[in-house]
Design a protein around this nucleic acid. Structure first.
Lengths: 197, 197
DNA sequence: GTCTATAAATGGATAGAC
DNA sequence: GTCTATCCATTTATAGAC
């Protein structure tokens, strides 16, 4: 094949953008981390840093979405429990990484919101995909309005991640998960409000 | 007096950090925006960019908190309505600024989370202050657990701001405000659940 | 004490050797 | 087609003129 270098560049960029942000990460640092020669970056990404940013956001977004899908596809638990799992998994990843691995998109999204339309758009697409996956899970259980509740869950999730990461304290993720999960549980259709099993 | 320049530097930095982030904003750009000579920056902030960042976060945080206080002190409405006002005011500011004026802290908080302890700590302090102000309002109405609910409200608020700003769409702030406000309303003590007036 | 001019380093991007 | 060496702009920080 040969395009292994390209994959390593994307992976290195994803990790650095997640940890330090887009502007603070130099292209030299990315090639060094990926063990790739400097020139290979402009070979694989002729559009420079912005193209690399856009592709990295898509890459990170797709990878993170697989985690959501994994959680959501556990049919044996209710959507409220799936949401709680999502919060718990993220809290664990955040804490075991020394409060480094937060949302792989949020930092770039905020940095790019008013400075790069292509990058902002890439982030918006990722968020839309995550939201849609969540809404599908809700709709499949008759939890309505599924789209609005998915937006709400993601807002709470993203915000709690910021608070927990900034404070070096998993508390916000835990507390928010409890309240959000209860909100979702209360929206389940009547016929399933029994105790389960 | 004489320290008018210092205030203008803080103000310019606050605006630029909010819009572009910390790493993407150059010190030269800040002095230019403030109409201050280049050297004055290191005169007033001998600690360089990091000191300016820390003080700017405190400055922005205090200013934003006054907005919260204003909303929360409207005793004639319930806490759920106060929360809704907070979301609505932010949505208006965001939209009328062309999706530029989001949270003045969040971008810097994420950028600094793993790169600057002084800056991260400054952001954490601001978030703690906002949360405490919200918790006081809840506690004054007997809405409990006030601290946990305040964390939840702020998580949802910060996340909705990200989603709305990234998507150029006030929808997430509106939708999230509705659900969060209802959650708070449902926590009001029994004696006040009547219709009001 | 206030600011101009400069320094040392790093940023993203490119030209051209192999 | 793949990468090394170089370029110029811009960054933060400082030294010293007024």
């Amino acid at each position: 094949m040969g395009s292994d270098t390209r994959a390593r560049l994307l992976e290195a960029a994803a990790q650095l953008f997640r940890e330090q942000g887009y502007a603070a990460t130099g292209l030299k640092q990315i090639t060094a981390e990926a063990g790739a020669p400097w020139g290979s970056l402009y070979h694989f990404f002729p559009g420079g840093k912005e193209q690399l940013g856009v592709e990295t956001v898509g890459h990170s977004g797709a990878r993170y979405q697989r985690l959501f899908d994994l959680v959501y596809e556990r049919a044996e638990v209710g959507a409220d429990e799936a949401v709680r799992d999502m919060f718990r998994l993220s809290a664990e990843a955040l804490e075991t990484s020394g409060w480094a691995d937060g949302c792989p998109i949020a930092t770039v999204a905020l940095e790019a919101a008013s400075t790069s339309e292509p990058l902002r758009h890439a982030c918006a697409d990722v968020f839309a995909g995550w939201r849609a996956a969540t809404a599908r899970r809700f709709a499949s259980e008759g939890i309505e309005p599924a789209e609005d509740l998915a937006v709400y869950v993601f807002a709470a999730f993203e915000g709690a991640l910021i608070l927990s990461r900034t404070g070096h304290d998993a508390g916000p993720l835990r507390v928010t998960a409890d309240i959000v999960a209860r909100t979702i549980r209360d929206r389940r259709p009547r016929s399933e409000t029994a105790s389960g099993v």
